[in-house]
Amino acid sequence: MQASDRFNINSQLEHLQAKYVGTGHADLNRFEWAMNIQRDSYASYVGHYPLLAYFAIAENESIGRERYNFMQT
């Protein structure tokens, strides 16, 4: 790679994609996009305990089970 390439938009994007999981690209298909959204959402649910509890009440499961289900998908 040449020095000028480093500031090229593509390589910057590649760098971002490597660093931040879930960064999109031009050829992203529907499946990949949806999966990234899902993973982002589930990670947020698992991280926010009150939200996890909220789901647990709705589904009448224990919070531990709910966390497991979210991580499993």
């Binding site: 931040y20 999981v21 879930g22 982002d40 990670a43 947020s44 698992v46 991280g47 926010h48």
Partner: peptide, 8 residues
């Protein structure tokens, strides 16, 4: 609370 940021 992000996917890849540690803390969980």
């Amino acid at each position: 609370c992000r996917r890849i940021v540690p803390g969980q």
